[in-house]
């Protein structure tokens, strides 16, 4: 992708219970050079993304997308981390964090024109 591109991060949050999780807070940690742009399906705010879901009952699954925008300094491979949490105690925290790896390739358009000069 090119610098300045939008990155779409799709989040799938589920609650295996037994209690409701309310509220549910999802936090995305973007790498340097990526900033929060917008979200669809959840109320989110930036710099990283902090998204809030009012309630997630046992068995519920919610999907939303967070958009991040790259700047011109982004290079190479970077990692985005997302974490979900709620006031309810989580007996299995290992699946509360997920990562996404992205590689930024730079496309530079350098046109070359050959002209002849007569001395």
């Amino acid at each position: 992708m090119n610098p300045g591109s939008l990155l779409a991060y799709r989040h799938v949050i589920s609650n295996a219970g037994p209690s409701d999780a309310a509220p549910v807070l999802v936090t995305d940690t973007f790498p340097s050079g990526v900033i929060f742009d917008s979200a669809v399906g959840a109320d989110c705010t930036g710099g990283g993304a902090r998204c809030t879901i009012d309630r997630l009952a046992p068995g519920d699954v919610i999907t939303f997308t967070v958009y991040g925008r790259t700047d011109t300094t982004v290079r190479g491979t970077f990692v985005t981390t997302a974490t979900v949490a709620s006031p309810a105690e989580n007996l299995y925290p290992d699946n509360n964090t997920a990562t996404a790896i992205t590689t930024v390739r730079i496309f530079v358009y350098l046109p070359l024109t050959l002209r002849s000069y007569r001395p």
Partner: peptide, 17 residues
């Protein structure tokens, strides 16, 4: 009463738009 919520999260690798 305690509340236990086994939350899980899947995060897809971003697709450039």
């Amino acid at each position: 009463v305690a509340t236990y919520a086994d939350l899980s999260l899947l995060l897809s690798a971003p697709a450039p738009l």
